[in-house]
C-alpha cells in the first residue's frame, strides 16, 4: 500500500505541470518561479538542517568498528586500520572509502537459517546486492547531475564535454545513448524491486521510502523521454536555463511540455530533499559512528557539556570522605586507614 500511495502521488505531481503548461499556459510559473523557489528552499533547508545537527550535542566517541583494535601484540593481532581507525588519518581514509565506495554496504552480510541433523544452524554470508544497486544508482545520478551543467554554464567546461564523451562512448543511436541514463533507471528499479520483493525490507518500508524512489524514477524517465523520444529543442532549453543563472528570464516558445514536467519533478525533489531521508547526503559526513577515531583507550575525552564547576570525585577520595561511616556499616574498604578519623578536606 505504501508503494501504491507513493506511485499515485507521483502521478498527481506529473499531472500538475501537464495541466498547468498545456491547458493553463503558465509557462513562466513552471519554467522560472517554481524552480527558483525550489532551489532557494533546498539551499536554506539544507543549511538549516546541517547547522541544526552541528549544534546538537556530540557524544565523546561512538565509532562502530569492524576490525581488530590496536593490540598488545601487533604482530599476532594486526590492527585493522580502516575498520578500526585510531588516528585522524586512518579515520579520513575510512570516510573516503565510506563516501566514495560505500564500504559499509560492501561489508553487508545476510543471515540465513539452515536445518541440519543436529538442529537449525545460523549462517552468515557476504551480501553485495544492496551495495551494487546503491553504487550504480548514486554514481549514475552524480554523473547525470554533472552533465546537466552544460545547460547552466556558457562556455561549457571541458570536464562536462569529457563526461559527455565517456558517457556516450557506445555511440548507440542518435541522440547517443548515455550509460548513466541506463544506470540510473536500472539502479532505481533494482532498489525499488528490492524494497518490494524482499519481505523483511518490505515490512519496514514507509511512504517516505518509496516516494523518493518513484520521484527519481519519474525524473529519470521524463528526462529519457525528452532526450530520446520527444527530442526537445536543447538550445531553446539552454536559453531558458541560462536565463535562470543570469537572472535574465526568458522562455522560448518552442519548448516541449515534457521539459516542464521534468523541471517540476526536479523542483519537488529539491523542496522535499532537506526534510527527508535524502539528507543522508550531508549525513554521511556527520555520522559519529564513522567519522570519529576509535581512541577512547588512548586519549582522555571530557564530555563537552559537563558543568565545569562540578569537580571529579575519584573513589579514593570518596573512600577517604566516607571511610568512618563505611567502616561502621561494615562495608569493605580498599585502604583500612580510612576507617579512622574523617579527613578534613
Amino acid at each position: 500500500m505504501n508503494a501504491l500511495y507513493s506511485l499515485l502521488f507521483v502521478f498527481l505531481l506529473v499531472l500538475i505541470p501537464l495541466f498547468g503548461v498545456d491547458a493553463a499556459h503558465m509557462k513562466t510559473i513552471f519554467g522560472v518561479c517554481i524552480p527558483i523557489t525550489a532551489f532557494i528552499i533546498f539551499l536554506l533547508g539544507f543549511i538549516y538542517k546541517v547547522v541544526n545537527w552541528g549544534r546538537s550535542a556530540v557524544p565523546f566517541r561512538i565509532p562502530t568498528t569492524g576490525g581488530q583494535f590496536k593490540s598488545f601484540d601487533p604482530v599476532l593481532f594486526k590492527q585493522n586500520k580502516y575498520d578500526c581507525p585510531q588516528t585522524g588519518a586512518q579515520t579520513f581514509v575510512r570516510m573516503v572509502l565510506e563516501v566514495f565506495a560505500f564500504r559499509s554496504l560492501f561489508r553487508n552480510t545476510e543471515a540465513s537459517l539452515h536445518e541440519t541433523k543436529g538442529g537449525p544452524v545460523v549462517a552468515y554470508k557476504s551480501s553485495k546486492w544492496l551495495w551494487l544497486f546503491a553504487i550504480t544508482f548514486h554514481y549514475s545520478f552524480f554523473i547525470i547531475a554533472l552533465r546537466h551543467l552544460r545547460l547552466f554554464l556558457e562556455p561549457v567546461p571541458f570536464f562536462v564535454n569529457g563526461l559527455e564523451f565517456v558517457d556516450g562512448l557506445l555511440q548507440i543511436g542518435a541522440p547517443t545513448m548515455y550509460l548513466a541514463d541506463i544506470g540510473l533507471v536500472a539502479g532505481v528499479l533494482l532498489l525499488l524491486g528490492r524494497r518490494m520483493i524482499n519481505p523483511r525490507v518490505n515490512y519496514i518500508s514507509y511512504v517516505s521510502d518509496y516516494f523518493p524512489l518513484f520521484l527519481i524514477l519519474a525524473i529519470a524517465l521524463s528526462g529519457v523521454y525528452m532526450r530520446y523520444f520527444a527530442m526537445v529543442d536543447v538550445i531553446a532549453i539552454k536559453e531558458l536555463t541560462m536565463g535562470l543563472v543570469t537572472f535574465n528570464y526568458h522562455i522560448p516558445e518552442t519548448i516541449d511540455v515534457s521539459f516542464f514536467v521534468h523541471v517540476f519533478l526536479v523542483s519537488v525533489l529539491m523542496v522535499y530533499f532537506p526534510f527527508s531521508k535524502l539528507m543522508h547526503l550531508p549525513g554521511v559526513f556527520l555520522s559519529p559512528t564513522r567519522n570519529m577515531p576509535n581512541d577512547t583507550r588512548a586519549k582522555h575525552h571530557v564530555n563537552p557539556w559537563n558543568d565545569p564547576n562540578i569537580k571529579a570525585h575519584s573513589y579514593a577520595d570518596y573512600e577517604k570522605h566516607f571511610g568512618p561511616a563505611m567502616a561502621e556499616a561494615g562495608l569493605p574498604l580498599d585502604n583500612p586507614e580510612n576507617a579512622g578519623a574523617e579527613e578534613k578536606a
Binding site: 547552466f152 554554464l153 556558457e154 536559453e239 543563472v245 543570469t246
Partner: peptide
C-alpha cells in the same frame, strides 16, 4: 561543518556566479 557547507553551497551557486561574471546574457 561550516567549511563543508560553504563548499557545497558554493558549488551549487557557481553557475550563478559564472553566469553573472562571464556569460552575462545568453542568446
Amino acid at each position: 561543518i561550516i567549511v563543508g557547507l560553504v563548499i557545497f553551497v558554493g558549488a551549487l551557486c557557481a553557475p550563478f556566479v559564472v553566469g553573472m561574471a562571464v556569460t552575462k546574457t545568453y542568446k
